[in-house]
Simulated assay, not measured.
Amino acid sequence: MPQLSTHLAARRLAAQLPALPADMKGNQGRERARYAFVTRTLSSLGADATVTGDRAEDWRRVARQLAILWQMGRDEFRVNVSELERSARAAEAEEPAPAGAPTGTGPHGGDLIFPWQATAEDWISVPGGPSGPFDEATMAMPDRKGIARTVVLIDQGHRFHPGGPQLVSVFLESGVLIERLVAVSERAQAREQWAKDHQEWHAR
Score class of each variant (00 low, 15 high):
Val81Met: 15
Thr119Ser: 07
Ala88Asn: 11
Phe114Tyr: 12
Ser125Ala: 12
Ala67Pro: 00
Glu94Val: 12
Gly110Trp: 08
Ser44Lys: 04
Gly128Val: 05
Glu94Pro: 07
Gly104Ser: 06
Leu42Ser: 07
Arg89Ile: 08
Glu95Cys: 14
Arg55His: 03
Gly128Tyr: 04
Ala97Arg: 15
Glu121Asn: 07
Gln71Lys: 14
Phe77Met: 11
Met72Trp: 14
Phe77Thr: 08
Gly53Gln: 01
Thr50Gln: 04
Ala47Val: 00
Asp75Lys: 14
Pro130Arg: 15
Gly73Phe: 13
His108Glu: 11
Ser87Gly: 12
Thr39Lys: 12
Gly110Ser: 07
Pro107Thr: 08
Gln117Ser: 05
Arg86Glu: 08
Pro115Ser: 06
Glu76Ser: 11
Glu85Gln: 14
Ser43Leu: 02
Val79Lys: 15
Gly73Tyr: 13
Ile68Ala: 09
Ile113Leu: 15
Trp123Cys: 06
Trp70Asp: 05
Asp111Ile: 00
Pro107Asn: 11
Thr105Ile: 07
Thr50Cys: 05
Arg40Cys: 04
Pro127Tyr: 10
Asp54Met: 03
Val81Asn: 15
Ala63Gly: 03
Ser44Met: 02
Glu94Phe: 07
Ala93Ile: 08
Arg86His: 12
Thr119Ile: 01
Ile68Gly: 03
Ala120Asp: 02
Leu42Asn: 06
Gly109Arg: 07
Val51Leu: 06
Thr103Ile: 05
Ser44Leu: 06
Ser87Pro: 10
Ala93Asp: 12
Asp54Pro: 03
Val38Asn: 13
Phe77His: 14
Trp123Ala: 03
Gly104Pro: 00
Thr39Tyr: 09
Pro107Ser: 13
Pro127Thr: 02
Gly106Ser: 07
Ala67Asn: 07
Leu45Ala: 14
Glu121Asp: 00
Ser125Lys: 08
Pro115Asp: 07
Asp75Phe: 14
Pro130Ile: 08
Asp111Arg: 09
Asp58Trp: 02
